[in-house]
Design a binder for these strands. Structure first.
Length: 581
RNA sequence: UGGCCCGUGGUGCAAUUGGUAGCACGCCUGACUCUGGAUCAGGAAGUUCUAGGUUCGAGUCCUAGCGGGCCAGCCA
């Protein structure tokens, strides 16, 4: 049987290019890609798309290529924004996703010396010059989208003067922002990136890796292509916004006469009900709208890991969304489908009552305890069974009882018989209410002949409820997560408040913390095969998939809801509610 | 008003490179079921952005238009 991981997926336009190249021998049969994050933030599902693409390609062409691998390269050219902490978390995330860069861990900063020499080479060739304009001056000379720029007054400086000035920039003789090294291309180019782009800027800042060795730092455009070149990358895959930079990428490689990889752009990932930009993610964290970078509601890799998503599910998702050259927004339901699909096969089943309602089995002997066999995972008999204690007093879900059942509700209600999973049929005989009229207890009788869950006389029940023995129950905290935003597109504003911004669309119910939840005491015995990442995941029957949060203690476990089960009753209920449909 | 890139069911992708569209998610039915889960079967849903053109034949090629994205950081 084909696993989701191995299922064939149609080739995308990037694979078409690679296949062509392999056929024509363009790169001597090599396929070398790279994932080049800037260590200035945490990775999110959008990065996962790129990671899966780049590392996936290397894996995929292992047999067909003479050499196939993917490098991990940190694009660390801006010390004012980058930190070691980000480097560490990025490595952790890529590893967790299941990819291995082997010894191919690189840093653009490792190439600073070479980059400097190349800059000098360009000056010697008359293709670069030191410009004394400040940021404002450069901007004023740049022109606009529709009008050409003007040459810098320093554009025609002599080579020797440029060399001396650049040397002095490097030596730290000038303050930040006072001068730049620029490529001499074309101030009239319709592509603004070609209007004498800055190659080096002065930044007296301590770099996480090179410390204070440099006070001039190369710009992205003067770094990325050359880094690719040094590493002999064949296909340099990046997102669409770099399309306009490709001519510059090519220009530098050609001007320098160095190995010239091919840049290919693809569309970044967008998901419904969430935001993906670093800026917005940062705002959510800084503003306290979420608990931190690994808040389970965030689309960050750390958040998803804590939410209980598996690397397998994320990889499968990334394979299924495809790769293209135009913006699109994927329905988060597909992501959720992928997690369910994976967890359904792997997660042991456990009974957990989230909102307890006490049930007393009036004809069941007081003090008696029976141990009933429960299946750990109906999808995988190899996961075995366990013995769950059953007693006179139990908890069932509040939602599983209705004093006045609506149409199509076939759970417990007065006079009705249902099955307690793996246990007995019970019939509701009496309802106990508090002073406020709230149902606080349901008194039932059980049929001893239905032990195990089947009636010898063949009679059927319409519902099977999960339950937990009251005295034996493990108390737990359960965190119910839902979409972070209440609209598929967080930017869509309600007509009555057109001036609001995306934050107004935060879903007030994105997190609900439940305490006093009752978990079946044998839940730990239900564990299936070990989870490679050490995060325990279970299915709470009829609820969804949950993972054990790091806030857990042995006295009180804490569970995070990864995703709910598909819930057809919820749909019926929703369609019954007035105002709907 | 400039340049570049891009338009296929609600959403995301396919279509053997010119032979009148197929898959998945979602949605709706039904079957089965000790999870209202899973599974299985079926259904609704597309003027392939529009208009011309080439061709026996166009989602694929050409032209124009319309729509969307990106670009005026000493960010990446």
């Amino acid at each position: 049987m084909a696993t989701p991981e191995s299922e064939p997926v149609r080739t995308n336009f990037i694979e078409d290019i690679i296949n062509d190249d392999l056929r024509t021998g363009k790169w001597d049969g090599r396929v070398i890609t790279r994932f080049p994050p800037e260590p200035n933030g945490y990775l999110h599902i959008g990065h996962a798309k790129s990671i899966c693409l780049n590392f996936g390609l290397a894996l995929q062409y292992q047999d067909r290529a003479t050499e196939a691998r993917c490098h991990l390269r940190f694009d660390d050219t801006n010390p004012t924004k980058e930190e070691q902490e980000y480097i560490d978390s990025i490595k952790e995330d890529v590893r967790w996703l299941g990819f291995d860069w082997g010894r191919h861990e690189y840093y653009a900063s490792d190439y600073f010396e070479q980059l400097y020499e190349w800059a000098v080479q360009l000056i010697r060739d008359g293709l670069a010059y030191v410009c004394d304009l400040d940021a404002e001056g450069i901007r004023q000379h740049r022109g606009t989208l529709t009008s050409p720029g003007r040459n810098s007054p320093h554009r025609d400086r002599g080579i020797e003067e440029n060399l001396a000035l650049f040397e002095r920039m490097k030596a730290g003789e000038f303050p930040d922002g006072s001068r730049t090294l620029r490529a001499k291309i074309d101030m009239a180019s319709p592509n603004l990136n070609l209007r004498d782009p800055v190659m080096y800027r002065i930044l007296h800042a301590t770099h996480p890796r090179t410390g204070d060795a440099w006070c001039i730092y190369p710009m992205y455009d003067f770094t990325h292509g050359q880094s690719d070149s040094i590493e002999r990358i064949t296909h340099s895959i990046c997102t669409l916004e770099f399309e306009n930079h490709r001519p510059l990428y090519d220009w530098f490689c050609e001007a320098l006469k160095i190995y010239h990889p091919q840049q290919i752009e693809f569309a970044r990932l967008n998901l419904t009900y969430t935001v993906m930009s670093k800026r917005r993610l940062l705002e959510l964290v800084r503003g306290g709208y979420v608990g931190g970078w690994n808040d389970p509601r965030l689309p960050t890799i750390g958040g998803m890991r804590r939410r209980g998503y598996t690397p397998e599910a994320i990889r499968h998702f990334c394979r299924r969304i495809g790769v293209n050259k135009f913006d699109s927004t994927i329905d988060v339901a597909l992501l959720e489908y992928c997690v369910r699909e994976d967890l359904n096969r792997r997660a042991p089943r456990v009974m957990a009552v989230l909102r307890p309602l006490k049930v007393v089995i009036t004809n069941y002997p007081e003090g008696q305890v029976e141990h009933l066999e429960a299946v750990n995972n109906p999808e995988d008999p190899a996961m075995g069974t366990r013995q769950v204690p059953f007693t006179r007093e139990l908890y069932i879900e509040q939602d599983d009882f209705r004093e006045e059942p609506p149409p199509k509700f076939h759970r417990l209600s007065p006079g009705r018989e249902v099955r307690l999973r793996y246990a007995y049929f019970i019939t509701c005989q009496e309802v106990v209410k508090d002073a406020a009229g709230q149902v606080v207890e349901v008194r039932c009788t059980y049929d001893p002949a239905t032990r195990g869950g089947d009636a010898p006389d063949g009679r059927k029940v319409k519902a099977t409820l999960h339950w937990v023995a009251a005295e034996h129950a493990q108390d737990a905290e359960v965190r119910l997560y839902d979409h972070l935003f209440s609209k598929p597109d967080p930017d869509e504003m309600d007509a009555d408040k057109p001036d609001a911004n995306w934050l107004a669309n935060l879903n007030p119910a994105s997190l609900e913390v439940l305490s006093g939840c009752k978990i079946e005491p044998t839940w730990r015995e239900a564990r299936g095969p070990d989870w490679p990442d050490g995060i325990a995941r279970v299915q709470f029957e009829r609820h969804g998939y949950f993972c054990v949060d790091r806030d857990s203690s042995s006295a009180k476990p804490v569970f995070n809801r990864t995703v709910t089960l598909r819930d057809s009753w919820a749909k019926i209920e929703k369609s019954q509610s007035p105002g709907k449909r």
